[in-house]
Nucleic acid binder design. Structure first.
Lengths: 175, 175
DNA sequence: TATTGTTATACTCTATAACTATA
DNA sequence: TATAGTTATAGAGTATAACAATA
């Protein structure tokens, strides 16, 4: 993904606008490197790649980590609530929780107040695994901070939050 | 996706760490709002949502727009090159180009130099559509800039480029 | 009537392997 | 031997609709 080298036709002496593409020349990405959405997508993929490689040893995907982290901090919350705060659909959470439960990391327990709902909890094993995952995530995050700097990370988090904290909490719907 | 309200248990007078979840309480996202990868993902989804809605009238998805934009700026480039600069697999580009060709927006033309390769070009219709798409993308981008500010966008692009311009151009492989 | 969890289903995106025709 | 395009396929992730149990 050679995105650093862009607009590199100068050395051939040709104009780079709409001239026939030279296989040896660098490729002009046009407006893309200046579009928030495009650069955001590329950065997200790059960061997830590091995350996924880091967590492969524990067979944990980003979405699984985020679910476990929210359960850890909100023991007893139900599936609808978990889906809502993570921005995923109730229906798509079912399979993930099935797997986490099958692996002995989390459990669904009947809720005394509302017999439709399940309370979600980490198992002891799940809590132990989370301690290891927090260490892994710290390593991963350190590598990302190495790319943008400590100050850069703070700026980045601020700006990114501004990008998605706009809509008034689009509740599930779908039925 | 109520990500603004976080760590909101203060008003109940309880500690928010590992206490049983109150359905009426706000949900603690734990480490997630401080992790670059998580916030990046949420922001990317939010920005793409606006992009997708904006381009729905033209039935164009983000990946299609990026392909058309690169073809527009590099007429005659081949599929491997296009896939490489967009960070997608050669194999996954085939269907997309089939569709763009079927819709009369782009064409594959035989390459005189190398009979294995196709040169990619916009059709006249494709070029006309691109003029409309550039207007739409400007509207979309304006909305994103409204969220972070002009200066915020510049900072954001810089930081995001730093996040993915690290690896030495991971060439396709896969075979 | 509305909500919780669930099933079924479909569509997009992504990833790998293997083939052909050329180089 | 290597590369360009293609096919087939499988896995995530995401979206909607509909159902039973419960509120």
């Amino acid at each position: 993904m050679p995105l650093r080298r862009v607009r590199g036709l100068r050395e051939t002496g040709r104009q780079d606008t709409d001239s026939i593409h030279d296989a040896r020349a660098e490729t002009d990405l046009g407006p893309l490197p200046g579009l928030i959405g495009y650069v955001l997508r590329r950065a997200q993929v790059a960061v997830f790649q590091d995350f996924i490689e880091t967590f492969a040893q524990k067979d944990i995907r980003p979405a699984q980590f985020s679910a476990l982290a929210v359960i850890e901090h909100n023991p007893g919350l139900n599936q609808s609530r978990l889906a809502s705060v993570l921005g995923i659909k109730r229906a798509n959470l079912v399979g993930m929780l099935d797997e986490l439960e099958a692996r002995g990391l989390a459990v669904r327990r009947p809720n005394s107040d509302d017999r439709r709902a399940h309370g979600l909890y980490l198992t002891d094993k799940g809590a132990a695994v989370m301690r290891e995952l927090h260490a892994l995530v710290a390593e991963h995050e350190q590598r990302m901070v190495a790319r943008v700097g400590k100050r850069g990370k703070d700026q980045l988090l601020l700006l990114l939050h501004q990008l998605f904290e706009v809509a008034p909490a689009d509740t599930d719907e779908g039925d």
